[in-house]
């Protein structure tokens, strides 16, 4: 049976690549600290020695559009091309190509459907920065096969927060029931408080530092019940108009499990948004 060797939840900041590779006057003052935190975070995945990565993210109106919008979608293809023209334009993200793990995709689809998740699928999916950012930060070699899973945190009507948690729990069970002796890391990215295209964007901090503080606490302690008690589709409008991306963190809390404390917790207060990084080792920390 497959083993879940690491569960990782992270923000996906599209400017990391540019900030970390810039030099001289172009290098932002926070770049060195950011790079150092990312390298430490990366080590938590490297140490787990994964063979396969399940990657949870959200399409930002790249391939998925309002004429045909799935709520939860699993990519099943031998390869996934990655990053789009407007991401290259705005963030300087390079075109990439990742190998797929079709057998695990098929397993998640079949058994996810049987577990009452009516998952959509795609056999030709060009993934975007919600999945390539954690590749760049956590596995820049981009050498492991992936199963991308997209959630709709972007185009309302959205699924309820509890469905994200339930899907996380189900993904964990599905990976653990995959009859291959392979080491799987489940990685998902979302946001803390975030405002895009509204009056609170690009401030000195994220739009709601108090929400960010609480959110980091919920995630770090695996406090799913408390989080579900406080977070609704309505309430997520308050910390910032793009904060529904926090539901992907809730999904990852579902993967990690109720009351399970993260083995690695870190954050970085940047302008516009707070970065946050979490790693759980379900079978104990690797040596």
């Amino acid at each position: 049976m497959a083993e879940v060797v690491a569960v990782i939840a992270s923000t996906h900041h599209p400017f990391y690549l540019r900030a970390s590779t810039s030099t001289g006057a172009d290098r932002p003052p926070f770049a060195d600290e950011w790079v150092s935190k990312i390298e430490t975070f990366r080590e938590t995945l490297t140490k787990a020695r994964p063979d396969v990565l399940v990657m949870v993210g959200s399409d930002h109106f790249h391939q998925l559009w309002l004429d045909n919008m799935p709520q939860f979608l699993v990519g099943k293809a031998p390869y996934f091309d990655a990053n789009w023209y407007n991401e290259e334009r705005e963030f300087g993200l390079p075109k990439m190509r990742l190998q797929g793990q079709e057998d695990l995709s098929a397993h998640i689809l079949r058994h996810g459907l049987d577990a009452d998740f009516d998952l959509a699928f795609s056999n030709e999916l060009r993934i975007d920065h919600s999945i390539t950012c954690p590749i760049i930060t956590l596995r820049p070699e981009a050498d492991l096969p992936i199963v991308p899973i997209y959630t709709n945190i972007f185009a309302p009507p959205l699924p309820q927060p509890k469905r994200f948690v339930q899907l996380g729990r189900t993904i964990r069970q599905l990976v653990e029931s995959w009859p291959e002796n392979l080491r799987v890391a489940i990685i998902g990215t979302g946001h803390l408080s975030l405002e895009l295209g509204g009056p609170r964007q690009f401030g000195e901090h994220g739009p709601d530092p108090e929400f960010d503080r609480l959110a980091v606490e919920w995630i770090a302690n695996g406090d799913i019940e408390k989080c579900l008690g406080e977070v609704t589709l309505e309430s997520l409008h308050l910390p910032g108009n793009a904060t529904h991306g926090f539901m992907d963190f809730m999904l990852m809390m579902g993967v990690a499990g109720e009351g399970v404390r993260a083995d690695h917790v870190d954050s970085l207060d940047l302008f516009h948004t707070m970065e946050a990084y979490f790693t759980w080792y379900p079978n104990g920390a690797p040596a």
Partner: peptide
């Protein structure tokens, strides 16, 4: 959708401004 508007407007007008100046003025 504010993400769509912001992304397109940054593509059109950021070039006329200093770093982050356009994004801040937009807000």
């Amino acid at each position: 959708h504010p993400f769509l508007t912001l992304t397109l407007f940054i593509a059109m007008f950021e070039r006329d401004h200093g770093p982050l100046e356009y994004q801040k003025a937009y807000g």
